[in-house]
Amino acid sequence: MSHALTPSQTIGPFYWGTLVNTYRADLAPPGVAGERIELVLSLFDAEGALIPDGLLEIWQANSHGRYNHPDDRRNLPLDAGFEGFGRASTDTNGEARFATVKPGRVPWPAGGMQAAHVNINVFARGVLNRLATRLYFEGDPGLAEDPVLKLVDAARRRTLIAKRDGAGIWRLPIHIGGAHETVFFDI
């Protein structure tokens, strides 16, 4: 029997504090394998104004390229204490911070490997449907062969590629519209 999908609605401005507080933006407790990284995602509207009331979520593989999920059946190690999910509000600067490990590469259904990436959900007042995007790492040797980036017009790929600042923090601005509009995916 087929059931009709429940439609999406905005998260609104007053999403409950515990929606955020109970999920650490620090995904990788001590002992989790991999290169420690810090991500700062900043959120902007179509006019370039920062969005201080957004919610960002990340989902990623561990450093071995394994997702902590029953549908990832590959024989790769899972790390105790690392689920790969993070959630954080944007602050008054429109920024959300995550501390994690750099994900390993995961395969592509038609063959080959994807470059290391973090999957992102964007929610905010005025956003009626979940906006899905990705974060890649500038300078990563896998970028040139990444099958997802190949689906994106070359001029817009940079909207998905985080850059490392002087302090070693990976930064990615996410623009919901405007001249620098981020690439969003229909998944």
Binding site: I51, N119, A124
Partner: peptide
């Protein structure tokens, strides 16, 4: 001011999407 103007790019579902 909070809606993308470009259509979302259709992404085949990989492990990243089905997990």
């Amino acid at each position: 001011a909070r809606s993308p103007k470009q259509p979302a790019i259709m992404l085949p579902q990989s492990l990243s999407e089905i997990t």
